[in-house]
């Protein structure tokens, strides 16, 4: 039954992605992208990944919309470049690669499979010892902020650098 909802969400995602690319008015494209973020977050929530859903909703539907609109306010609103017509060879290459990737999805472990490699490698240890070793009651927080502390630290540095670059490019008062 959740398969029906997932199929509908994925169909909506395809429609919204095509719309976001095809709409000529850039404000309309940004709004379509915001709706795309909402539906993507719904998909995550349906799979039970609430943390990912929250992050996707905040970043995809909230923050990136605001940032895109702020960028449009300082640049132009209509799309200037025309999309070139797709050549047959590049179209064929895209469909070939997409088909290969689609075939490769059959190799994935099925969703929620307790015997899949990620579930049997380190997860049982985290679940067993996570609270005793870190003291964090939320296991996601324990893994993100403690077991993968360096990873998260460098991620924060990357985001900080990106924010700095945006501020340098956009945030200066006009001379």
């Amino acid at each position: 039954m959740s398969g029906l909802l997932n199929a509908l969400f994925l169909a909506l995602l395809v429609i919204l992605a095509v719309a976001a690319v095809r709409v000529r008015d850039l404000v309309g494209a940004v709004l379509a992208l915001s709706a795309y973020g909402l539906v993507l977050a719904l998909t995550w929530a349906g799979m039970g990944a609430v943390d990912v859903a929250f992050t996707e909703a905040v970043v995809g539907a909230g923050a990136s919309t605001v940032f895109f609109l702020a960028t449009l306010l300082r640049t132009v609103r209509t799309e200037q470049v025309r999309l070139p017509r797709a050549r047959a060879a590049s179209l064929a290459a895209v469909f070939l690669l997409g088909g290969l990737l689609f075939l490769a999805t059959h190799e994935f472990p099925s969703w929620g499979d307790p015997a899949s490699p990620p579930s049997v490698h380190v997860s049982p240890r985290y679940l067993r010892l996570g609270y005793a070793e870190t003291g964090a009651p939320n296991i996601v927080t324990a893994v993100l902020a403690d077991y993968r502390g360096y990873d998260t630290l460098v991620e924060t540095v990357v985001i900080f650098t990106a924010a700095l670059a945006c501020w340098v490019l956009l945030g200066r008062p006009k001379a």
Partner: peptide, 10 residues
């Protein structure tokens, strides 16, 4: 609830 807030922000 978070969605409703974000939608309002957008």
């Amino acid at each position: 609830l978070g969605y409703a807030l974000l939608n309002f922000v957008g």
